[in-house]
Computed example of a mutant assay.
Amino acid sequence: MPVNPIPRYLVSEAVTRALAEDQGGRGDVTALACIPAKAESKFYFVSRQDGMFCGMQPALEAVWQMDPEALVSPQVEDGSKVAKGDVLASVTGNARALLSAERIALNFMGRMSGIATFTRQYVDAVAETGTRIAHTRKTTPGFRAFELQAVQAGGGALHRFGLDDAILIKDNHVAVCGGVAEAVKAARDSAGHMTRVAVEVDRLDQLGDAVEAGAESVLLDNFSLDDLRGAVAQAKGKVTLEASGGVNLDTVRGIAETGVDIISVGALTHSAPNFDIGLDEG
């Protein structure tokens, strides 16, 4: 599945901030001290492990912001399966600039490839069940576009990007509104016909109220496997059912086999390990 590119202005802004944070007020004093000003070098981004790759956009942006004339040759695309030792991209340019960009490029690649690889493990765990794995909004502040692109690169489904994407009524909304039905009806009356309304329930007896009030999706929060099966039988395909809570690689297959449509996993973005990528001189 093609991975949607991140808008260029978001990539540029994020990389600019990252480089500024890394360089401080004096720049890369090590490169300035050790490397001749006009020295040219060729480097290779190399995978140190097997997994899924993501992060080419910000990595190359870091290179180009430091050396606009650098020559780059990507060898893989976001969403590619890679093996230990694979060359991901080669870059040729001013040695000082490339070494100054190295850590920021690797940070983006490592974080995003880690999420993509972790997501793929979940996707593979529910293979052939028909259930999709989706992210949540439990993302690193300011880094959401990159983390969600990485989920997609790992084969995960896209959920809400932000609060303006869809109406998702959570437990605190329900509490303030006085009940599931009341909250869904208020949302349905307010929303345009193009806006989906989803509601979170934490008991099986709330599902009927949600469906009757007009919800298109129902999030089943921390349901037991028996209750998930009961919800699937009760809904009869009338709404999209999403399971969340208590999801890990040991439990996700069993949850998928209950017949829910989607399993949302916060761990994809808040607990993915870093992916090991290095920069080697050619």
Rank of each mutant, 00 (worst) to 15 (best):
N94R: 13
L228Y: 01
G142T: 09
R196N: 04
V265W: 04
M66G: 03
V201N: 08
G25H: 10
M52Q: 04
R17M: 06
V239Y: 14
I262E: 03
V63A: 11
A18H: 12
D276N: 14
A213K: 10
G85Q: 06
D227C: 05
V29L: 14
E40Q: 13
V211K: 01
L163I: 15
R26V: 08
V239G: 12
A243L: 06
P2R: 09
G27I: 02
E216K: 14
A134M: 15
F118H: 14
E200V: 01
Q49T: 14
G25R: 10
K38N: 09
V15G: 06
W64N: 12
R144A: 02
Y9L: 05
V126P: 04
G208R: 13
V211Q: 03
I277L: 15
R229E: 12
A134K: 11
L148T: 07
H173S: 03
F108S: 02
C54P: 11
R120N: 15
L249D: 09
K81T: 09
V180W: 10
A231Y: 06
G179Q: 03
E13N: 07
Q234Y: 03
R17Y: 09
A243S: 15
Q152Y: 00
A39H: 10
G110N: 10
G114S: 04
R48Q: 13
K84L: 08
R120P: 05
G245I: 05
S190L: 14
W64E: 13
G246K: 11
A105S: 15
V174I: 15
Q75R: 11
L241W: 12
K81I: 01
L228H: 02
T129F: 09
H193E: 07
